[in-house]
Design a protein around this nucleic acid. Structure first.
Length: 556
RNA sequence: GGGCCGGUAGCUCAGUUAGGGAGAGCGACGGACUCUUAAUCCGUCGGUCGGGGGUUCAAAUCCCUCCCGGCCCGCCA
C-alpha cells in the first residue's frame, strides 16, 4: 500500500544502508534491521508477524505499537519480495477481571460505564471476553465489540491486519495438540516456569478450564486424563489484583478445547500454531513474559521463538497513558486532528526511545512530518534525517506524490477561522500555498487539514481558536482609536489589497498618534471578540468589502 | 531490595550496536520585507550529552557508581 511494486526505478540503495568492513549492513530505518534479523533465520513464507492484546476495553494509541511496529517490518519485507502475513490476536479467552471505567461505542465514541448496564456486565467477572455479551447489545460478544474497534482503527491507519480470535484457536482445535503436549510434559513445564514465577509448585497445572456451571475461568485442576483428552477441576475462588472472583464450587470435567493455557504458555503456543517470525512487545513484557516465553518455546514446545523487539512506552501530554486516570487518546480521536501519515510517522521513529505524544503541541509533530516529507522530496536538506526519510517516507503515505500540498498546520488553523471554502482557497492562494496550476486533488487533500487543525484549535482552546464573528461584539473604543478605524474603513471602501490594508493600519495609527497595538486590538475585538488574532490587514482583505466597512464603522 | 529500558539545547529529535568534529528543526531573541500577531528571508543566543569516577592519545558512545522517569521481579495480560 505504500510503495509501487512495479516501479523498478526505486534506487537499490534505498534500503541498503552503509556496509562496513565485516560486510554487515547498517540501516537508517530500524525496520530494516529487524528484517535482516528475520531473514538471517531463513524463514518459511509467508513470514508471519504478530501483535496482540486482550480486548479488555478501549484500545488507546499506545496499543497500536503492536500493530504499527509490525506493519513497518512487514512492509519492508514485502518490498524486498517476501510474502508476509501480519496477524493480530485478540486474546479474548482471557477473563474479564475488573470493569473498565471507560468504554467506546461501535463508532469509537468514548462513554462512561454508567452509560451501559454496568450491573449486568459485573455479573460476568471471571468469564472469557468471548462469553460476555456486548454491553452495547450489537456485536456477538464483548470481545467481538472491542476487537472490531481495533480493526476499524487499523483500517483508518491503512494497515491491513488479519484479526485472529484466540478463543477460536481453542474451539476449532488449533491449540489442542499444544495443550496436550504441555500437559503431557507438565513436569518440564512446571520446572521451566518455576524459574520465573515463584508461585509455581508441584500442584501447578498449566491449564485453566472454563467452569461448565458458571462459565468462569478456573484455576484448580485435580486430574489430567491424556487418553480422554480431559481435565477434572473444581471451580474455586480466583484472585485478581485486589479483587476476589468467587467460584461456584462446581466439580466438573473439561476437554482441552474448553479452557485456556495460562498466558506464559499461551503466548509461545501462539507462536507455534501461527508460525510467528516476529513480534514486537512493550517494555512490560521485556522482563516478564519474554524471557519465560523464550525458554518455554525452546524447552517445552521445542520451537524457535520469534525475533523479539521491545518498544518503549510513550506518554500522553507528558503523563503515562492510563485508562484508569483517563489519560488516553484513541486513534480515531487523533485522526480527527491530523492525517494518518502523521501518526504513522510517529510510529516510524525509533521504538527504543521513550517519547511524548503531546496533543497540545500537535502542530510540532505535524511540522516534523512535513519536514520529513520535504527532505524525502529533496525540497530541503537535513543530514540528520535524510537517510531515514529516504527509506521510511514511502511507507507512510498511500501514494508518493510530489505535487501534494501541505499547509503549515498553524496556517491551516488560521484558515479554519473562516467557514467559507472559497475564502479559504483564496487565502491559501494569496499566501502562495496553492496556484492556478495546483491539481484539484492536491487542494482537496490539503483542505482536509484545515478541518483537522480547526478541531484541534477548538479542542485545545489555544491561540488559534478564533472565529470570525458574524454578529458584532460590544466594543468600547477611545475616540482617537475610533477615528483611526474610520480612516481604515474609508481606505477599505476605496478598494485595496490585504497587504495594503495591513500597511494602512500602521499609517492610521501613526496619523492619530496612537499605539499600533491599540488599533490592532480594536480590530481583533471587532472581528474576533478577542484581543489577538491572525495577521489582521491581510485577513480583512480576504473578506467581503461591505462587511468589513460596516464592521469598522460599527454601523451593523 | 534485585533486574531491565529510557534520560543529548527551552521543545521535538538525530548521533550510542562498531570510541575521534556536539548536530538539525522548531521556539526564543535581534533584524529585513512601507507591516509586533498566520507566511517568507537573514542573523544571534542556546548544551558540564542526567551527576560523579575510571579505561584510553581520544568517551554522548566502553566500565563502575549514583540521581530521575517508567517497567519487571505476586496474579494477570
Amino acid at each position: 500500500m505504500s510503495v509501487d511494486d512495479s516501479d523498478d526505478s526505486v534506487p537499490a540503495a534505498a534500503g541498503e544502508g552503509d556496509t562496513d568492513e565485516t560486510g554487515e549492513t547498517r540501516h537508517a530505518f530500524w525496520a530494516d534491521e529487524v528484517a535482516d534479523e528475520i531473514l538471517a533465520r531463513d524463514p518459511d513464507e509467508p513470514i508471519v508477524i504478530k501483535g496482540g492484546i486482550s480486548p479488555s476495553g478501549v484500545a488507546h494509541l499506545g496499543n497500536f505499537n503492536e500493530i504499527l511496529r509490525g506493519y513497518f517490518v512487514a512492509e519492508v519485507l514485502r518490498e524486498r519480495g517476501y510474502e508476509v502475513r501480519q496477524v493480530f490476536t485478540s486474546d479474548d479467552k482471557d477473563p474479564l477481571r475488573k470493569l473498565p471505567r471507560k468504554l467506546a461505542d461501535k463508532d469509537g465514541n468514548i462513554v462512561g460505564l454508567g452509560d451501559v448496564d454496568a450491573g449486568a456486565l459485573g455479573q460476568n467477572l471471571g468469564k472469557p471476553y468471548t462469553d460476555i455479551p456486548d454491553p452495547f447489545g450489537e456485536a456477538e460478544s464483548y470481545a467481538a465489540h472491542f476487537a472490531a474497534l481495533i480493526e476499524a482503527d487499523a483500517e483508518r491507519l491503512g494497515v491491513p491486519v488479519e484479526m485472529i480470535s484466540n478463543t477460536e484457536l481453542y474451539s476449532d482445535g488449533t491449540f489442542e495438540p499444544v495443550v496436550r503436549h504441555v500437559l503431557e510434559n507438565a513436569d518440564t513445564a512446571r520446572e521451566v516456569l518455576a524459574e520465573y514465577q515463584s508461585k509455581v509448585d508441584d500442584d501447578y497445572v498449566p491449564f485453566n478450564p472454563v467452569c461448565g456451571n458458571c462459565g468462569k475461568i478456573t484455576e484448580t485442576v485435580t486430574a489430567i486424563d491424556l487418553d480422554a483428552g480431559t481435565v477434572d477441576y473444581v471451580c474455586t475462588d480466583m484472585t485478581a489484583g485486589d479483587n476476589t472472583i468467587s467460584g461456584c464450587d462446581h466439580e466438573g470435567t473439561a476437554t482441552f478445547r474448553e479452557g485456556k493455557l495460562p498466558w506464559r504458555f499461551e503466548w509461545p503456543a501462539q507462536w507455534q500454531v501461527l508460525g510467528v517470525d516476529f513480534e514486537p512487545f512493550g517494555k512490560d513484557h521485556a522482563e516478564g513474559s519474554w524471557p519465560s516465553g523464550d525458554d518455554i518455546a525452546r524447552n517445552v514446545l521445542d520451537i524457535q521463538p520469534p525475533v523479539p523487539m521491545t518498544y518503549e512506552w510513550f506518554t500522553l501530554n507528558g503523563e503515562p497513558l492510563s485508562s484508569s486516570a483517563g489519560n488516553i487518546v484513541t486513534v480515531a480521536e487523533v485522526l480527527e486532528l491530523a492525517e494518518p501519515e502523521v501518526l504513522r510517522y510517529f510510529f516510524a521513529l525509533n521504538p527504543r526511545r521513550a517519547r511524548d505524544f503531546d496533543l497540545r503541541r500537535l502542530d510540532l509533530l505535524v511540522n516534523d512530518f512535513d519536514r520529513f516529507e520535504r527532505v524525502y522530496f529533496d525540497e530541503e536538506t537535513d543530514e540528520n534525517i535524510e537517510q531515514l526519510a529516504d527509506r521510511a517516507y514511502p511507507f507512510l503515505v498511500d501514494e508518493v506524490r510530489e505535487e501534494r500540498v501541505r499547509f503549515p498546520y498553524t496556517f491551516a488553523a488560521v484558515l479554519g477561522m473562516v467557514d467559507d471554502p472559497e475564502l479559504r482557497r483564496q487565502m491559501a492562494k494569496n499566501e502562495g500555498h496553492i496556484t492556478d496550476e495546483t491539481p484539484e486533488w492536491a487542494i482537496e487533500d490539503a483542505m482536509e487539514r484545515v478541518e483537522k487543525a480547526r478541531t484541534w484549535a477548538k479542542r485545545m482552546d489555544n491561540e488559534y481558536n478564533y472565529r470570525l464573528q458574524t454578529e458584532m461584539p460590544d466594543v468600547d473604543l477611545d475616540d482617537d482609536v475610533a477615528d483611526a478605524l474610520a480612516d481604515l474603513a474609508a481606505f477599505v471602501e476605496d478598494g485595496h489589497t490585504g497587504e495594503e490594508i495591513q500597511g494602512e493600519i500602521y499609517e492610521a495609527a501613526k496619523r492619530h498618534d496612537i499605539d499600533t497595538g491599540d488599533l490592532f486590538q480594536a480590530g481583533y475585538l471587532l472581528f474576533f471578540d478577542q484581543t489577538q488574532g491572525p495577521r489582521l490587514g491581510e485577513f480583512l482583505g480576504e473578506l467581503e468589502q461591505e462587511f468589513v466597512v460596516k464592521r469598522l464603522r460599527r454601523t451593523e
